[in-house]
Design a protein around this nucleic acid. Structure first.
Length: 708
DNA sequence: GAGCACTGC
């Protein structure tokens, strides 16, 4: 695959940034036993099935029904069904490998506990929803294909029919369904799986299903059963929230993992990871694979380069080394390569971000090296700034990482931190709802009839975050005032779009500006990852060949130009065109898919003709102001801008096509803080337009310089 | 003249 956003392979650029110590000093560990409450589970080496479709091929083949009977959950079948029958809400704590996700929906179905309704099971990730549904359909019976009794529903892919009784879906999908029917009458059983991950969607669903259950009960409607499935974390918290409901524990099938801590702290955790790898490499049999957790792409590529170099050193003992990297920005084909079994007498080492913590399971890992660090996004409601920061992981994450070594057999985990550093880490990861921008959630909740301030959250988000969100909703015209519990007609339409409310507003405004085609394109492009590829080695070339698309009006119009050209190219030439122009084919196709969905939603909202402004881009730029007027920056002195809203000092990001220019006013799509505060996704606008389009906002946010 | 972890509708 060539559609990578980054140049991957020789990594020459990254390597120069890190000093290579050819012989890193050894890292010394004490050897301590596993987690304090580690349960030593008897080894039982047969037929583990995995939910991600990567089954172990060197095990003897046994029938699919025998595999089901061998799962730990099988023995508890009757007990579980009894509990599900007896309790309207049940928490199931299941360890990895218990089989809970694939089996429990089938048990419920075969006992007909769902009666005439459906069983809905949510997952935080699309791939999980699809692959689990496919697996369960296979198990379910002969000739059964996914989409019959067992189906799934994820964005852009609804594989259900009127026969579907067991429906796997993403948590975001169920949330969207709730906006059309807040009582979720389609379902008699709802299972929220992976609840411990606490995605923003699952957190909102906790409140939605709890309220739906209560309302249906009060109105004497068909009852709703709720099942919360989670790893073994903080049962009390969940149980209290669901009126002290019953919790049941399911044993898993994992193997003991020996935990090692360093004797002293290591600030240069990257070098220590490399050194630890070679310590393992010297001692362990060659078929024992190693997984290293680091924080980001650049760090991972640099570390891979060091390992590859050192492995060639004649002084280094041990088998040959096959080194893989793993992070989300990679093309999927490259991600898949980590599943290749290593050839004989070769050690496989995978260096990964936290994508390997939950999203991707690599079989055969015996050793985990945990740097103890993660890169995480934090949102500051007071400034509206998002900050991407390397920080320490939580205990939950540390155990999750360690567990990756114990999926196929007994394993080892080397933690590049001391026991006392570990004790200082946070017990659990702060749930997303407590560190995210709440604009979208607040709008969604209003569409469900609740004000975020009064919503029954499992964990309440910070007050400032909801205050900031409601101020913006009011400015966008979605509510009449910040305490309103109902949406304006505009707000109701905005909630129908699966977008940031600011972008929904742009689409709604496009009707009046006569630029719906262009607005849909720009918003779709803003809703995906970047379509531009900037390989480190061919950066100048990429910029030169794309020069013809650059607009003096800024980045968003430039993106529009690229998209228009992409659509004008014949179907058979698109791939080659993308390659020639350093455009990410996967991402631009994804933008097109989103654009189609948004266009359908416009028709549902009776938005009339698909108007186009053609070459009159002023209309589009004015339309963008309707949704993004809180994102205006004004030039104050040489290349220095301040935001109109929070008076932040900011600069244009060097990747912007306006980087060397100094327009008086710009709209920006986002502000990211790294070394400095940078604006990205720029569009130039006129002062007069602001006064004309958002006069009230401009009264409270006056410009320093009034000339254009 | 810099560099972005991970999801989802």
């Amino acid at each position: 695959m060539m559609d990578s956003k980054y140049a991957i392979g020789n990594g020459q650029n990254s390597i120069n940034k890190y000093k290579i110590k050819m012989k890193p000093l050894p890292v010394i560990f004490n050897n301590s036993s596993g987690p304090p409450n580690a349960k030593k589970i008897k080894l039982n080496d047969e037929n583990r099935n995995s939910t991600n479709g990567h089954t172990n091929n060197n095990k003897p083949k046994i029938s699919i029904q025998d595999q089901r009977r061998n799962l730990p959950v099988f023995d508890k079948r009757n007990k579980l069904l009894e509990l599900v029958k007896r309790h309207k809400t049940l928490i199931i704590l299941g360890e990895t490998g218990s089989g809970k996700t694939t089996q429990i929906p089938q048990y419920i179905h075969s006992a007909r506990l769902q009666e005439n309704g459906k069983i809905g099971i949510t997952q935080p990730r699309r791939v999980a929803a699809v692959s689990i549904a496919t697996r369960v359909a296979q198990e379910f019976g002969h000739g059964m294909t996914v989409g019959d009794t067992v189906g799934y529903s994820v964005r852009f892919d609804d594989c259900t029919s009127n026969k579907t009784k067991i429906k796997f879906m993403t948590d975001g999908m169920l949330l969207r369904e709730a906006m059309y029917d807040r009582l979720l009458m389609e379902y008699t059983v709802i299972i929220l799986d992976e609840a411990h991950e606490r995605t923003i969607h699952t957190d909102v669903l906790f409140g939605i299903v709890k309220k739906a259950q209560k309302t249906r009960e009060d109105r004497n409607q068909t009852p709703l059963k709720i099942i919360i499935m989670s790893a073994t974390m903080d049962v009390e918290h969940f149980s209290q929230y669901f009126n002290n409901c019953q919790a049941v524990y399911l044993e898993g099938r994992t193997y003991p993992v020996n935990i090692n801590y360093t004797i002293k702290p290591h600030d240069d955790y990257q070098t220590s990871c490399v050194a630890t790898f070679f310590k393992i490499h010297r001692e362990a049999p060659s078929n024992h694979d190693v997984l290293i957790f680091l924080t980001g792409q650049e760090e991972i590529e640099a570390c891979a380069q060091r390992i590859r170099l050192l492995a060639k050193d004649p002084d280094v003992q041990g088998p040959s080394v096959k080194c893989f990297t793993l992070y989300a920005a990679q093309p999927s084909a490259q991600q898949m390569s980590v599943f290749q079994p290593s050839p004989p007498n070769t050690r496989k080492v995978v260096i990964s971000t936290n994508i390997a913590e939950t999203s991707i399971t690599i079989p055969g890992i015996r050793y985990v090296i945990d740097s103890g660090m993660v890169k995480a996004r934090t949102f500051h409601p007071s400034t509206g700034l998002e900050l991407l920061k390397v920080q320490r992981i939580s205990h939950e994450q540390a155990w999750q990482r360690a567990g990756r070594a114990g999926r196929d057999s007994e394993g080892h985990c080397y933690r590049i931190y001391t026991r006392s550093q570990f004790e200082l880490m946070k017990k659990s990861t702060v749930p997303e709802i407590r560190r995210a921008n709440l604009l979208t959630v607040s709008l969604q909740l209003l569409a469900l009839g609740v004000h975020a301030n009064y919503f029954d959250f499992l964990d309440k988000p910070p007050k400032e975050a909801t205050v900031a969100a409601f101020e913006q909703l009011q400015l966008l015209g979605a509510v009449d005032d910040v305490n309103s519990i109902c949406l304006t007609p505009v707000g109701r339409k905005m909630a129908k779009f699966p977008l940031d409310p600011r972008f929904s507003k742009i689409i709604l405004a496009a009707e009046q500006y006569g630029c719906l085609q262009e607005a849909l394109t720009v918003v779709s492009l803003l809703s995906t990852e970047s379509i531009l590829i900037n390989p480190v080695t061919k950066q100048a070339e990429a910029q030169k060949v794309r020069q013809k698309f650059c607009s003096a009006y800024g980045d968003l119009i430039t993106l529009l130009n690229i998209y228009r050209e992409f659509e004008a190219v014949g179907q058979n030439n698109k791939r080659i065109w993308c390659h020639e122009h350093f455009i990410n084919m996967r991402n631009i196709l994804h933008a097109r898919e989103i654009r189609n969905q948004l266009e359908q939603l416009c028709k549902k909202c009776d938005m009339g003709a698909m108007s186009s402004c053609g070459g009159d881009l002023d209309r589009l730029r004015k339309c963008l102001i309707m949704g993004m007027f809180m994102n205006v920056a004004e030039l104050v002195r040489d290349h220095q801008y301040i935001t109109l809203d929070k008076k932040q000092s900011v600069q244009f990001h060097p990747s912007s096509c306006l980087h060397r220019q100094q327009p008086h006013l710009v709209l920006f799509a986002e502000v990211v803080q790294t070394n400095k505060c940078y604006l990205r996704g720029l569009t130039t606008i006129e002062a007069d337009w602001l006064r004309e389009i958002v006069p009230d906002y401009m009264k409270s946010h006056s410009l320093r310089f009034n000339s254009s």
